[in-house]
Computed example of a mutant assay.
Amino acid sequence: MDEVADTPKPKAVKGEDAKRIKRDTLGIGDRRKHHTRAATPMKGHAKAADTHHRLYRFRFYPTEEQVEQLERTFGACRWVYNEGLALRSNAWEQHRVRVGFAEMCRTGRGAARQGCA
């Protein structure tokens, strides 16, 4: 039990080394700036004091054709999620590099980009 507590935690690779590993080894493109679009002020989400929320519940009874389409769609979503999770896990285990959501979207791995629309 004491041996586990004494082992140091692995350090993450940061800075230029992390950028190089992500670009060359993992195939994650560099970050692009968005300076072409003008900034817009944020809108407040506060509701008036006398407003109320309504709750609606719906049931969905899909046809056999809709069930098949939903199963294909959920299967594709599960595949995309698992591919992203595998990339993140492998990046940490093999290279000690953290990969975030935006970097996942920049991987350019075909169907994996569909989850980042």
Rank of each mutant, 00 (worst) to 15 (best):
K47P: 07
T51S: 15
T51R: 14
R20Y: 02
K14G: 00
R37W: 02
F60V: 13
E71R: 13
A18Q: 02
R31V: 12
K47L: 14
I21C: 03
D50H: 10
P8K: 10
E16I: 02
M42D: 10
E16A: 09
E16T: 04
H45N: 06
D30A: 03
L55F: 03
H53D: 15
K43Q: 06
H34P: 02
E16W: 02
E71I: 11
G29D: 11
G27H: 05
R31Y: 13
D24L: 08
R59I: 13
T40W: 09
P8W: 04
Y56D: 04
F58Y: 02
E65S: 06
L55K: 15
D50F: 06
G15C: 02
T40L: 14
G75V: 04
E16Y: 01
H34K: 01
H35P: 05
Q66K: 14
D17Y: 00
P41I: 05
R20G: 06
E65W: 01
E65P: 01
D50C: 04
D17E: 03
K9R: 04
F74A: 06
A48D: 15
T36S: 09
E16D: 06
T51K: 14
I21Q: 02
I28A: 07
D24E: 15
R23P: 06
F60Q: 13
T63W: 13
P8A: 07
A18L: 01
F74N: 12
T51E: 13
G27P: 03
R57K: 12
P10C: 00
E16F: 04
L55N: 04
E68G: 13
K9F: 05
K33H: 10
E64W: 04
V67N: 14
G27K: 10
G75Y: 09
K22P: 03
K47M: 14
G29C: 05
G15H: 01
H45W: 03
P62C: 08
I28N: 06
Y56L: 05
H52E: 08
E68R: 15
K19V: 06
D17T: 00
